[in-house]
Nucleic acid binder design. Sequence first.
DNA 1: GATGAAAAGTCTAAAAA
DNA 2: TTTTTAGACTTTTCATC
Lengths: 153, 153
Amino acid sequence: MILAELQRDATQPYAALAQIVGLSPGAVHERVRKLRERGVIVRTTVDVDPAAVGRGVLAYVLINAGAWMGGEETAEALEAIPSIEEAHVVAGAATLLVKVRTQTTEELQATLKKLFDVPGVTGTQTIVALETFFERPIDVVARPVRGTSKGAR
Amino acid sequence: MILAELQRDATQPYAALAQIVGLSPGAVHERVRKLRERGVIVRTTVDVDPAAVGRGVLAYVLINAGAWMGGEETAEALEAIPSIEEAHVVAGAATLLVKVRTQTTEELQATLKKLFDVPGVTGTQTIVALETFFERPIDVVARPVRGTSKGAR
DNA sequence: GATGAAAAGTCTAAAAA
DNA sequence: TTTTTAGACTTTTCATC
């Protein structure tokens, strides 16, 4: 509940959150402190409009590999490419999946070229997003949990 | 510069940002206010550890359609499924791409079942993430801009 | 854990340059 | 657009429940 509110607007004062959850501001402060301490809240950040900062082109790139690419060297090579926002090792026809944002399709092409320089990459398949319906925070609302006596915290 | 700092840590006082960018806190406040006003900063939020809130399973689902699915009804139907974090209309072999987070693979299966109830869906292809190398904020650092006399703001 | 209150720190707006 | 200033508001701590 507090988490969902903070996802929605992390600029709210503790007094506002306190009213929403029915606690004192001090108690909310303590709970949020613990959520940070435990690592449930990873960071407080601002969401930026991609188009406003020259990242209007979005694509997902499936990467095929001729060797195992789940190592730290691969992670570092991908992190060094600023237009890559996410990188995952995946199961399926491909080995890796990366999320790429660029200003233009030319820059997307340049990113693909860089990907081919990453050791092990043998091929890519690019899926270009034509329209984004939505991108939203992780759903943290307690759901019916089966097999446990406690609900999601 | 201010944007990148806020992405990294939006809890910093303006005085700290002011020192980093070499301005007075008042000037930083004014710049941030304008970034929000213009919609460059969409919102201030907290990033949550997916595993900590029962969302340890990550998958991307490519959706095939037997009809045009770029409409508002499709967007709403997908938004109604809480485990879907992103939804895009894409170019390529598939029609839509959605990012799904669930607690278990059973719940992932339940999400796929829900997807087949969305009008127009004729098939899906699921890519399960085995490991996430990184997920990070959009790169907002000014890059060499070709074709314009002004740099990225 | 939660409360309430005091102290420290920060935000915000406004005037002036 | 930036700086400075000052009052209002928030965060943070701490004693207490």
